[in-house]
Nucleic acid binder design. Structure first.
Ligand SMILES: [Mn+2]
Ligand SMILES: [Mn+2]
Ligand SMILES: [Mn+2]
Ligand SMILES: [Mn+2]
Lengths: 219, 219
DNA sequence: AATAAAATTTAGGTAAATCTAAATAATTTA
DNA sequence: TAAATTATTTAGATTTACCTAAATTTTATT
């Protein structure tokens, strides 16, 4: 199955949006890919033709097992390149997503596997996301609780689900990175903002949106 | 100037074919890019519009200085990725050209310069070709003599100008690599084949075509 | 259940990068 | 130099991946 770059980007986005949901809507996919719903409908027909998705008019989209396999390969490449950029080329975690967005489209199993080996077969990427292995098997995300939902108050940062440069830069300035331990000082009901504190640093408040992006586990 | 992948491939090929020639012909470029002359004419109009080439109907193509600058950036990326693949991921010299053909299109100066640094700012790639620096300055190829033209008989292999997998694999089996020293045993006039010998190995004969691809310097 | 609103699809484009076949220009050969 | 050959360009399609505007279907709201 030879996929174009556009097709790969669709497959990857469908995989991401499918998580938890029963089907991916045309509008959601258009928003995720920064394109128009009409374009999504066009592509849906093509991907159905290629048996990568299940799709019926007005019924939303699901990956077939073929499609899932393809998605996992793309995600594997994306996350390995992110590791490479951070660990070997000293990029910061907010810089690597965009570059990996292009590097992920170089389709060579040999390259992918050699890269993985070169990096010591890493299990998680710079944002805390698990990396599928050569067979496409991916460890469950180690945490499924966001700081927003978490009940506990002594927490460790395990992953960041929003990869936007702006958010990751914000977290940099606040000293929040993977492995950071923090205490919840206060949860404000009226806007769901949270005041948190990292040892030896002044406390600060984050919005609901930020709290939803920070994945944590209780210490 | 934002170039598409197709435009970058054209620019790179024009740069390559321009060497020595006064202008690049439509047919030569079509052959190099494995496309049709009519497509080349179309693209020539577009690249002229973008001021990357000088082009008049029936007069052939030349890069402008803008175009040359672009070409050198692409070549820099191509050759740095080839180095990476060979030196860090243990690829063999015949495997890297195709992969670099894709990796070269990831346009990020920061990535390119970090990669160069990571590799120790290499000056030549795995095929013996010089790597342009960040400013686009490239050392003259260290040798311009092919084994075919060379007069001397004790020679060192400095580069291989044909990057086809088949030729490079052939050279592997014969023990010819960068730095290999060899003696010319005999030059056969009737077909321009050459019998050569590498120390401690049986002599063997190469065709004119192969001899033209091996760049050498006298020891 | 009827109507309004929202989501999705269809119809009919466009732009990029190709192609084939035909026309034209340049070059070579006789 | 006229004819033949070769090189190049033009004309007219095709495919991919988009788009806008209009039509249709689904879902939510009276
Ligand atoms: Mn991508
Ligand atoms: Mn990531
Ligand atoms: Mn290329
Ligand atoms: Mn090379």
């Amino acid at each position: 199955m030879n996929l174009s770059i556009a097709e790969e980007n669709y497959i990857k986005s469908i995989y991401k949006l499918e998580e938890g949901q029963e089907a991916v809507s045309t509008n959601a996919l258009a928003y995720e890919l920064d394109t128009k719903p009409a374009s999504v409908t066009d592509m849906a027909k093509k991907l159905k033709e290629k048996k990568l998705i299940a799709y019926e008019k007005y019924q939303g989209i699901n990956l077939t097992s073929e499609g899932k396999k393809a998605a996992l390969q793309i995600i594997r490449r994306h996350r390995l390149w992110e590791c490479f950029l951070v660990e070997k080329l000293s990029f910061s975690w907010e810089e690597v997503h965009e570059l990996a967005e292009e590097l992920e489209h170089v389709r060579s199993e040999k390259l992918t596997n050699r890269l993985s080996e070169f990096l010591g077969n890493p299990q998680i990427d710079p944002h805390g996301d698990p990396i599928p292995d050569a067979q496409g098997k991916m460890g469950k995300p180690r945490v499924q609780t966001s700081l927003h939902k978490s009940k506990a108050n002594r927490l460790e940062v395990m992953a960041v689900s929003d990869k936007s440069t702006a958010l990751l830069e914000f977290l940099n300035t606040k000293g929040v990175r993977l492995g950071t331990q923090l205490d919840v000082i206060e949860r404000y009901e009226f806007d769901n903002s949270i005041e948190i504190k990292i040892k030896n640093q002044p406390a600060f408040t984050i919005s609901e949106q930020v709290a939803k992006s920070i994945m944590v586990k209780p210490i």
